[in-house]
Design a binder for these strands. Structure first.
Lengths: 336, 336
DNA sequence: GCCGATTGTGATAACGCTCTCAGTAATCAG
DNA sequence: CTGATTACTGAGAGCGTTATCACAATCGGC
């Protein structure tokens, strides 16, 4: 690999001068500048960012840890982060932790060793000490989508409660009283929050929740399929079903289809997290749209702000509002 | 940030000994090892991977450049790459080039400056010189999904032609003669290849392609919507439509739905790239399933092989077979 | 009691760059 | 013509590791 020393030699100047000419800082005569540039391109010189990081104390790299990039929601978040951060010259290291605290911890350690300038993480809820370590080591951390109460770090969140409430109230408004839920795992922040909001919404309408209609899934498509099957096997079924994330909604819809259940007549369905394909379903799916891409951009902006103003101020939380997109899977809508 | 020098000082040994104790190489007495370990954890020491890379000449980091991580296909590819590569201790830097040669070039440069150990790229078709530069600089490059003929680098590809042929032959077998296509941009490898394979398949069946039924889209959902609209406006319409990627299929299906076209009766549809939600559509969508995740794992393995055996052998190409998943959107299928 | 091997230790030189500092030559004010 | 300023240059320190040496201490074999 060709170094700045080689460039300097070919250009007939010292390393220092070559560095100044290439880096565009300090003095360098026109002729020196030109000879160095010519030498650099002749040798196909590419500055070593590693060596530069060594001195500058910054890597222009950010860590991003999400649970699963193959989930369209997180893919959108990641995309949002990247778009914002790119303009400031940062690259991102992407990690999929699969909601596994061990894997997450491993990644946090790696990320830290690589001396990223900052970290955006969707915490699984496991050990928070490592993240605290990052913060006290001067590496800003921003939480996305979920947040850990005990961590004094910025967060970009979705108002899950408002989204769930809108969905459930929509069902109630359409006359549903028997409402079931396929929720996420309790150990996950979003899993808990959406379930609690669901129960809250029922309570508010003076509807007593039926335990048999509350099923805890894993946020994976397969579990949506399974849980929907369980609900269908009940003698007394709910008339409406709220599914707490995108993947489980696919599974649930598939099961309902396989069992020949008419939507919304025999079972109304609302999903959490709207997807591109929701309007092409028959009937089009009513869903709570989460602004995933925007969430990523906000998280990135929070991080950039921290990076600009060294360790300034108390943790900040930005909450984005989801939007209930009413289509026809609950009985409402234009062509219902 | 605490360095190995601080650890050494606290443990009462030299830097060299501390490094040996921590790194587990060379000699270090039991007592030294223990004192160093204690000092390290007391100080919350995290080794500086940047400094290590400086010496070792490797960063344990790989570059991944795709067109858009928000596209589920690429998200799956990225996920596949990461899963394989993680086991070998590599982290990945993710870049979205948006099929933009300028952006891609910028990323390749950044990636190179960061001295990644290797690069997996889905090339947009723009300048290939930079990639050649990487290769001649000793940094292995693996192409994924697309490939550039003029680049002597490994590639992991999908057999687009076979996939398209299977889709078109399926339509023909069901009696369709008037078949349209919403293709991808000609400047992209996959765009060209799928269109050519489409024309080939028609030719093989002695069907003369109708130019009005050949529409070039952008591989984005919106263009699927637009192009489907154009087809519907024709006086003489095709009876079947092949859509060359996942996003455009969503757009096209939406348009067909909005215009009240019955699938498959008024228009049969086959999509390229199967998606989780394809079976929940009404009717379930027939599509060519691309093994995106597997493609990522294969690309990663090719890269790891290059990294293990220094610059060994001629470029290798692995071609994965797609699979036509027959459902009911073309008129075939169990419940057609 | 000496030799060679084994075990343990600490200086110190890299890695490739940036940045400070000293020094030279040229320019300019007085 | 002197002293100060400006324009430019190169030597060299240092970022935090690893790797190479030289050297000290211990030990077994004769």
């Amino acid at each position: 690999m060709v170094t700045i020393r080689d460039v300097a030699r070919l250009a007939g100047v010292s390393m220092a001068t070559a560095a100044r000419a290439l880096g565009g800082y300090g003095y360098a005569s026109e002729s020196a500048r030109e000879r160095v540039a010519r030498a650099a391109s002749a040798l196909d010189y590419h500055p070593n960012a590693i060596a530069r990081s060594m001195i500058k104390g910054r890597t222009n790299t950010l860590g991003v840890i999400v649970s699963d990039n193959a989930n369209p929601f997180f893919a959108a978040v990641v995309r949002g982060i990247e778009d914002v951060v790119l303009a400031q010259g940062y690259a991102i290291i992407l990690c999929n932790a699969d909601e596994d605290p061990t894997k997450e911890a491993m990644y946090v350690r790696t990320i830290r060793q690589k001396r990223v300038d900052g970290l955006i993480i969707s915490p699984s809820g496991g050990g928070v000490e490592l993240l605290r370590g990052l913060l006290s080591g001067g590496i800003p951390v921003v939480q996305v989508d979920r947040h850990h109460g005990g961590l004094k770090a910025d967060a970009a969140l979705i108002d899950n409660r408002a989204g769930v409430r809108a969905a459930v109230e929509h069902l109630i408004r359409l006359g549903h009283r028997r409402i079931g839920i396929i929720s996420g795992p309790r150990r996950l922040f979003t899993g808990r929050e959406r379930l609690e909001a669901f129960l809250d919404a029922l309570r508010r309408a003076r509807i007593r929740p039926n335990e048999r209609w509350i099923l805890e899934g894993t946020f994976k498509a397969h579990s949506g399929y399974e849980m929907a099957g369980q609900i269908l096997r009940l003698r007394r079924r709910p008339s409406a079903l709220f599914v707490a994330n995108n993947l489980m909604t696919i599974g649930a819809l598939l099961r309902l289809k396989e069992e020949g259940i008419a939507i919304p007549k025999e079972m109304a369905v609302v999903g959490f997290d709207d997807m591109d394909w929701a309007p092409v379903l028959t009937p089009p799916l009513t869903a709570v749209a989460q602004p995933g891409y925007a969430l990523g951009t906000v998280a990135a902006q929070l991080l950039l702000r921290r990076l600009a103003a060294q360790r300034g101020g108390p943790p900040q939380t930005v909450v984005l509002q989801p939007q209930l997109v009413v289509r026809e899977s609950c009985g409402a809508g234009a062509r219902a």
